[in-house]
Design a protein around this nucleic acid. Sequence first.
DNA 1: GACCAGGCACATC
DNA 2: GATGTGCATGGT
Length: 222
Amino acid sequence: MEKNAGSRRGTPALLRALYNRLFDAFGPQGWWPGETPFEVALGAILTQNTNWQNVARVLEHLKARGLMDPLRLHRLPAAELAALLRPTGYYHLKAERVQHFLAFLWERAQGSLDRLAEEPLESLRPALLKVKGVGPETADSILLYALQKPTFVVDAYTLRVLSRHGVVAEKTPYEELRRLFMEHLPPEVPLYQEYHALLVGLGKEFCRPRPRCAGCPAAGWP
DNA sequence: GACCAGGCACATC
DNA sequence: GATGTGCATGGT
């Protein structure tokens, strides 16, 4: 157990303090980039282990081609879809994963993210996690940002920031880190969205693999 | 040319 | 259950 997580009593205050400091440093992030829930969900799959700039380029291209649409993408042959996804890397794999998600979306909600959002988080999250190619981070990103469900998104930045500051161990499992936030913060969608976005903002700018945390505004926290 | 980027599934021990 | 590996492009 790390130095701060050891005393659970102080954790809500720690998480609040970090949030406040990040918000002061970076301001509101207004995440996730994307005009529609479908675009957000697609972006969540495409950005797996991939630079967002590459994803953004593909999303714009899809929009320009009139393909930012569940039905049209669903009808696209796998090879054609893969070719469109090429700049995001792992493109054969991602084409399959997008098709699995689309199949799920049609089977479960007739292709409508609005209809999917009618389901409660408790049944939707396990269902999403059964879709091949949708792991916990992708599922939570779709739930929080596309479907407005109060679930916390953990990603590489979340773990790196919190472990560098001694809040958790470096190899803390996904579900444990998610639980840490959800047990100690009120289940508010805007708070969860903003917090995750701020952690990514901090991570991208200051908490990179190396050099370690040069000039980080959260230095000295808590 | 090496390293990195908003993971995930699968094989192996 | 923990660890290693394949998947791949584009920016720095």
